[in-house]
Every structure is written in structure tokens, then in C-alpha cells.
Amino acid sequence: MATIRVGVQVQPQHADFDGMRAAWREADELGADTIFCWDHFYPLYGEPDGKHFEALTTLGSMAEVTERAQIGALVICNSYRNPELLADAHRTIDHISGGRAILGIGAGWFQRDYDEYGYEFGEARDRLAQLKADLPRIKERLGKLNPPPVGDLPILIGGSGPKVTLKLVAQYADMWHSFGDAEAYKSKNDILLQHCADVGRDPSEIERTWGLHGDLGAVADDLVAAGVTHLITGIGGDGRGYDLGPLRELIAWRDRVNAG
């Protein structure tokens, strides 16, 4: 069985920046394999005008204060920044972190971000079409930058739309992220396997990462049995900082599974 990895999304909302910084350090010391933020301008739940921080600058700080975990956003919204800039910023974050950056990206969906910051929200198909156009630009720019990334700088694509998103995963992604139960994973993975066959991609090259919602014990074993190898729990702020209890539980579960 493949080695299982686990991560945490320290959601940059409802907390002070010092609280986020402390949570990243603690997650790193606990042994999380990956630490993520997200890319929004306002909280997704709780007080809608509560504390919140921007993703790329947050990632620069995360890169500086952690030592071993891979870091990234789950996920960057493609609509908010020029694709060449996104590539360059992540290359720079990769250097700050010593080669631990992940470029996580998705088409975008949170309309308030778009409306408040002056981006055109449009239709989902338009945002997906833009992601399809921008991914090759990101790959091309990564190949031109001097100096190049230190590490592999894997591309993670978030989402599970069967016609466009999963085809983009097959074409461009080193990691694929979505969420749901084991049956949802299996049905979406079957579609991904077909896209991989269609484009000549070895599906084993794509790490399956999956978001956990609710009780760990109820879903984690089933997801791993279905083929997921990387589970990620999300933790929101509690006013000033974060309670990493769910991550501790997830790491203990990982260690038991990997020990056989």
C-alpha cells in the first residue's frame, strides 16, 4: 500500500496573523506532511466581515516559518491574478521554503470575492475556460524563470467537474484535490482514469488528495481503501488562533496506518 500523507488547511479567517503563524509552526512540528491556506478575500463561514488575510503574502510567511512540510493554497483562484505572475510568485515561494511549494489552483467560485474586488464573475463555464487557457501559460512560465524552482513545484488542481476539470487534472496536475465520501471519490476517479487514458497520462503520476469534513473515523479508512493517499483537514480560527486537535488525531491515524 502507498504511504499515506496528511495535511491541514489553516484557514486564514477569524484569527490574528500571529495565531496563523503559531498554527503553521505547530503543524510543522507535529509532523503534518502539508500545510495549506486558501485564496479568498472574506471568510467563507462565521462572521462574513470577520478577520481575513490574502493568500500569496500569507504563503510567503508560511514558507519562512516552517521547515519540513510542503506548503500551498487549497486552492489559488485562477481569476484573481495573471497566470505568469502566479507562476513567478510560487517559484519565489518555493525558494523561500527551500523547495517545498505546491501550486494549488482552481477556477474560482466565491462570488463575493469577485464582486468586492472588481473581478468579472460570469458563468462557471467561463471561469473554467480561463483556467484551461491559463494552465499551459503557467507551465510555460515555470520553464522560463531564472532561477527555476528549487523543488518539483507540483501543480495541484482542485475540483471534480467531469468534463473540464478532471480532463485538466489528467493533462496538467501532479495532485488532484476534491472532497466527499468514498463512493464520490470512486465515481470521480473512474472519470479521471478515462481522461488519463484519453490523453496518454499515467494516472499513478497524480497524487489523490481529499478534504475531510466531519468525523475522521467515519470516512478516512474507506477513502484510503478506495485509493486516496493524502487526507487534509480544515481548521478555522477561533478569534485569535487555532485548535489543531483534528490534525493531531489525523497524524496519529496516519502513523497507525503507515505502520501496518
Rank of each mutant, 00 (worst) to 15 (best):
G72Q: 09
L103H: 04
V150K: 13
D174S: 13
Q70R: 15
A173K: 05
D126E: 15
P148K: 11
Q130W: 02
K139R: 15
Q111S: 10
P154L: 12
G99K: 13
S97G: 13
I71C: 07
D94Q: 08
G98Q: 09
R125P: 02
G118V: 11
A63I: 09
Q171K: 15
I155A: 09
A89M: 13
I155F: 09
G106D: 06
C77Q: 10
E116W: 01
I76A: 04
S79I: 03
E84H: 09
R91M: 10
A170Q: 01
L128E: 01
E67I: 00
L166T: 01
D126M: 08
R112A: 03
I96C: 04
V169I: 09
A124W: 01
A129C: 10
A133K: 14
A101W: 03
Q111C: 00
G104E: 10
A173Y: 03
G158Q: 08
D152G: 08
R112E: 12
Q111L: 03
Y114Q: 07
D115Y: 12
K163H: 10
V164T: 14
Y114G: 02
R68K: 13
R141Y: 04
G60S: 12
E140D: 13
R125K: 14
H90L: 14
Y80M: 03
W109A: 05
D134P: 09
E123P: 12
D152E: 15
D88F: 00
D94R: 12
I138W: 11
Y117M: 15
Y119G: 08
D94V: 11
R100V: 07
S160V: 06
A107Y: 08
A73L: 11
L74I: 05
A129K: 14
S79F: 02
M62P: 07
V75H: 02
F110K: 07
S97V: 12
D113W: 08
G151F: 01
A170V: 02
A107G: 05
I76L: 14
E120Y: 15
L166G: 02
P154E: 12
L156W: 08
N82P: 00
E140I: 02
A73N: 06
